[in-house]
Design a protein around this nucleic acid. Structure first.
Lengths: 127, 127
DNA sequence: CCTATAATTTAGCCAAGGCTTAGTTTATAC
DNA sequence: GTATAAACTAAGCCTTGGCTAAATTATAGG
C-alpha cells in the first residue's frame, strides 16, 4: 500500500477505541467490530496486530486498552480529524457528509493543508 | 477494505494510463510501475486484474490501452482530481503539497463536497 | 449453581497488493 | 544479423484485511 495507507487502519482503530473508552468507559471487541463495520473475527485479528505493534493491550476475553503509544496516536489522529470535520462544516458541507468525508480525508491531509484549513475555519467562524 | 478504498487502486491506474497516453502517446508497463512507485511485477499483476475487470486491454509485451469503461473511469477520476487540486491551490496550499494531498483526497470526497469545493474555487478566482 | 446466551477466539479460506528471483521476449546498437 | 540490454512475464512468497464455521469462555437468570 502507498504511504498514507499503511497506518490508516491503525489510526482508525485507536481513534475508535479511544472514543469507546471515553463514551462507554471501556472498549469491547463487539463494539469495535460493529463500529468498524466488520465481523468480530476480523476486528479480533486486527487488534492482535495492533497489540503486536504496541498500540493496544488486552487479555483474552477482556476489554481493550490503549498503550501510551496508542493514546498518543489516537490523540493526534482525533485532532486531525476534528480539524478536517470543522473545516468541512465551516465551508458549508452538511453535517452527515462532513462526518463521512472527514473520516476518509483525515489520512491524506498534510500538515500544511491542515494549517490552511484551521485558518479558514477560524475566519469563517469569525471570532 | 472500506468502501472508498475498493476502487482506489483502479482509479489511480486508469488515471495514470490515461495521462501516459496523452503525454507519451502510449502507456508502457515500465512507466506505469515507476510512476506508481512499485516494481514491474507488481504493476503487471495489477494490470492483469484491471484487464480481468474490463478496464484495460493489452497483449503480452505490448503497451496498455484503456477500454471504454476504463476511459470513462479515468475521465471521471481526473475531473474529481482536478476539482480537489484547484480547490487546494485556490485556498492557498502550495503547489507541491496540493498535488500530493489531492491524490489521496480525491477518493474520499463526496459529490456534495466537490460541489462546495467548486463553488469556493470559482469565488476565489473571481471570474 | 447451573444453564443458556453472548462475547471472544481459533482455524481455515480468499483476494489484493507488495516483494524478489529467474526466465523470456523485444528492441537496440554495433 | 546477431549480441546485449531493456522490458516484460512467471513463479513463489509475504502481509493485510476480509469472510464463515466452529470451539471456547464469560455472564446473567432462574
Amino acid at each position: 500500500m502507498r504511504e498514507a495507507h499503511k497506518t490508516e487502519a491503525t489510526e482508525d482503530y485507536v481513534e475508535l477505541i479511544d472514543d469507546l473508552i471515553r463514551v462507554n468507559g471501556e472498549a469491547r471487541l463487539v463494539d469495535v467490530a460493529s463500529r468498524m463495520g466488520v465481523t468480530q473475527p476480523t476486528a479480533s485479528k486486527t487488534l492482535a496486530r495492533l497489540q503486536r505493534d504496541g498500540y493496544v493491550n488486552s487479555e483474552p476475553y477482556r476489554s481493550i486498552f490503549l498503550t501510551e503509544q496508542g493514546k498518543e496516536l489516537a490523540t493526534q489522529s482525533r485532532l486531525r480529524h476534528e480539524i478536517v470535520l470543522d473545516f468541512l462544516l465551516a465551508i458549508g458541507v452538511s453535517r452527515d457528509t462532513a462526518i463521512r468525508d472527514s473520516e476518509g480525508m483525515e489520512h491524506h491531509v498534510s500538515e500544511e493543508t491542515l494549517r490552511v484549513f484551521k485558518k479558514i475555519t477560524r475566519a469563517k467562524i469569525k471570532k
